[in-house]
Design a binder for these strands. Structure first.
Lengths: 159, 159
DNA sequence: TATTGTTATACTCTATAACTATA
DNA sequence: TATAGTTATAGAGTATAACAATA
């Protein structure tokens, strides 16, 4: 039984489809695969605007919280402040956002959208809304709506 | 209106919590945050065995498909074959898995678990099962079960 | 002393091109 | 000519340490 030359025993599993076994019943695996697909679509949908998911989230948050401190946005998105610096600088370089020193705490940088940034956010929001509608239609409204509560609980670590 | 010295207009959004706006209603954002939290827990739970998610998935698939070709596992996990080489080599170096040239196609490397690998997979499976039970209990069985079908559809890009 | 933003740096993950040995 | 595995390499994403200015 040591090694043997029996081909059938040696290579096995030659079918076209692989059995992923218990993986398919594990929420982590399924969640990961779903998230990768969503991101893949995201890149395609936002390619025309040259915007990546993290940039999109940043723009959205600054849009809803004009003048918010840089570090608070980073914290809300769970991005390390040290990694967030380059991303704000890039958005600033592209003329979408700008830093302004806080009047009350001169260590803080307050973030604001430029007019160009505001216009871009409008376009992004409309693309995103169309995507949500498409997904909701594909899954059925009830199923789609039902995903949010459990996913938020998981995101909060309530398990 | 150019710049202005009005503090209230300049810094804005000073509350403790940030308004993430429509982001919280977007499946991509919520899915991403949930997936990050699951991975965070995964690292903690599997730290004792020094196993990362991709390694876990690889071991599980080889466990269920002994002798499967290396490239087919990479494809099943959506990992580029070029990046998969190092990960198989590492598992082989750790004595968990081994490559054997296929008897029918000498280009192919067939993957097998070692006895150590089989024993590890047993321990990992038991940890994973406990995690699933914990999440199911936290969300409620009905809610937990209901997540899989829509997430699989999203993962397949059916939207 | 502690905090905000910053730089420098390293490590992982992911992506592309080019090679080899087989088929 | 195409495929399986490999190497080398470059680019993102993410992590820590240390610093300046300010609180």
């Amino acid at each position: 039984m040591e090694a043997g030359d029996e081909e059938t025993e040696i290579h096995g599993a030659t079918g076209d489809d692989i059995d992923i076994g218990p993986l398919g019943q594990e929420i982590g695996y399924v969640l990961r695969r779903a998230q990768l697909m969503i991101f893949r679509r995201f890149f395609a949908d936002f390619a025309a605007e040259d915007i990546k998911p993290a940039q999109y989230s940043t723009l959205m948050i600054v849009s809803r919280n004009p003048g918010v401190a840089q570090g608070r946005v980073a914290a809300a998105l769970d991005i390390k402040k040290t990694n967030f610096v380059a991303m704000v600088s890039e958005l600033e370089r592209r003329g979408l956002m700008l830093r302004r020193p806080s009047a009350t705490d001169r260590r803080s940088q307050c973030l604001h959208l430029t007019d160009t940034g505001v216009a871009l956010v409008e376009r992004l929001r409309s693309i995103a809304a169309r995507n949500e509608d498409r997904i909701a239609a594909a899954l059925g409204d009830g199923v789609y709506d039902g995903l949010f509560a459990p996913l938020r609980r998981i995101a909060r670590g309530e398990f």
